[in-house]
Design a protein around this nucleic acid. Structure first.
Lengths: 226, 226
DNA sequence: GCTCTTGTTGTACGAACGTTCAACAAGAGC
DNA sequence: GCTCTTGTTGAACGTTCGTACAACAAGAGC
């Protein structure tokens, strides 16, 4: 056994400066790090792995930090929701709005087709997100704050989709219940994604995209080719 | 404070026979009771309420009983899956098979319509089951035993649905990819059910049923009326 | 009324949970 | 080089978790 050294010993002798035991980060930087680590935990082990211990270990940080930067573990979960679902879906909405605004370049059909396709791009239609989404859905059913955020988000997306559908219907002189079609389309996408995640042999992303187009084309006519 | 009585006192005096402290049940009866109590816990509080303490309290039983009747808490969850999803879906399959066998009374169109409708009956299309299914889905993604059971179950249901679809298509001389239509239909049902559970203002069971019929009728022609 | 089987109880245990908080120290500002 | 702010640590706490197990007793069988 080595003899215990007085605290100041190292400094006095000036041998080696001990490396910093941790690095300080801006509050929002650290929050992002924790949100990302928490998301990783969720995607690997589901809600059962959404734990102070595991998240802090994943982030390489001490146990006290989550409660310093978030009101509670539950507050962190809300932030994970926002940075996962919220952010990505809002991106889709914003892009679709932009396309629809640039009406000169993008005919309504092309804008709708682009929005449909984005649902099946690997960014959203991803098996990695299975446990994240499933865990968050389960929490939405129980957590009023999350439920409110979820409704707001889906309402916005549904409205955008309905507008794109309505634009095509008007141009083609078809009578379509655009809000209902938007709702059904979203249900189909969520359902296909779920089937794919739970059993990848049942459906491919390509087949899923085809199914999405088929549903809308039954009401609107061809969308995929000029 | 009353004086502590010797244990045998009551019996010796023959005053009142203490009522039994518990009742013995057959192993399978008690197992059913525990499965039902566990299911109730799941539906109220999600996977977070799936706990030895809460389930035993819900069942009015002592803490040791779950590990006596099941290999572990996880084993109980598998039984909950079987008695929830497995049993109810297998009922649908069996009924559909029977209808298809009685071909004389049930034309294919009526058999398919009945199968479609059963998806939206209050027994299956129920908000009470939200947390149960969501919790079980989350577990399927993580638990190999459940995953295997899930695939077997969905494969069977998808096959039955595809057979019913194919029967109608053949009779009407239409070219239809029945397995794909069955898969898409199931995805739509699951997605609509999910949307309804998370936000009941978006869709009604009636509208959901209409959406289900619309999807199939786009391929097969009218199914709902003669 | 007695015995025997076995379903049931309830305590004990270690591990892991979320939260709190006093102490610490990194690094900016002077 | 010093001070001061504040991001960070890690021990401590009470609770709840799943499991194990010895003791108990209900009720069938004789």
């Amino acid at each position: 056994m080595t003899e215990a050294q007085p605290e100041g010993a190292k400094k006095k002798r000036g041998a080696k400066k001990a490396p910093p035991r941790f690095s300080r980060e801006q509050a929002d930087v650290r929050r992002s790090m924790l949100i990302e680590a928490a998301t990783r935990c969720l995607s690997v082990g589901g809600i059962g792995a959404f734990t102070i211990d595991r998240i802090c270990k994943e982030a390489g940080v001490s146990r006290g930090l989550i409660n310093h930067h978030f009101e509670s573990l539950d507050g962190l979960l809300v932030e994970v929701y926002k940075s996962s679902l919220y952010a990505s879906v809002n991106n889709q909405i914003a892009e679709a709005k932009r396309r629809r605004a640039e009406a000169s370049d993008w005919p309504p059909e092309a804008a709708l087709a682009a929005l449909v396709r984005s649902n099946f791009s690997s960014e959203y239609f991803s098996r990695e997100n299975l446990l994240i989404w499933l865990s968050l859905w389960g929490e939405i059913a129980v957590n009023p704050r999350l439920k409110a955020a979820h409704r707001e988000l889906y309402d916005a997306y549904r409205a955008e989709l309905a507008e794109d559908i309505a634009a095509v219907a008007v141009r083609r002189g078809r009578q379509v219940d655009a809000p209902a079609q938007a709702r059904n389309f979203i249900a189909l996408v969520d359902g296909l994604w779920l089937e794919w995640c739970l059993d990848e042999s049942v459906v491919t992303p390509q087949a899923a995209e085809a199914a999405g187009f088929e549903m809308l084309e039954a009401q609107l006519g061809t969308l995929r080719d000029e």
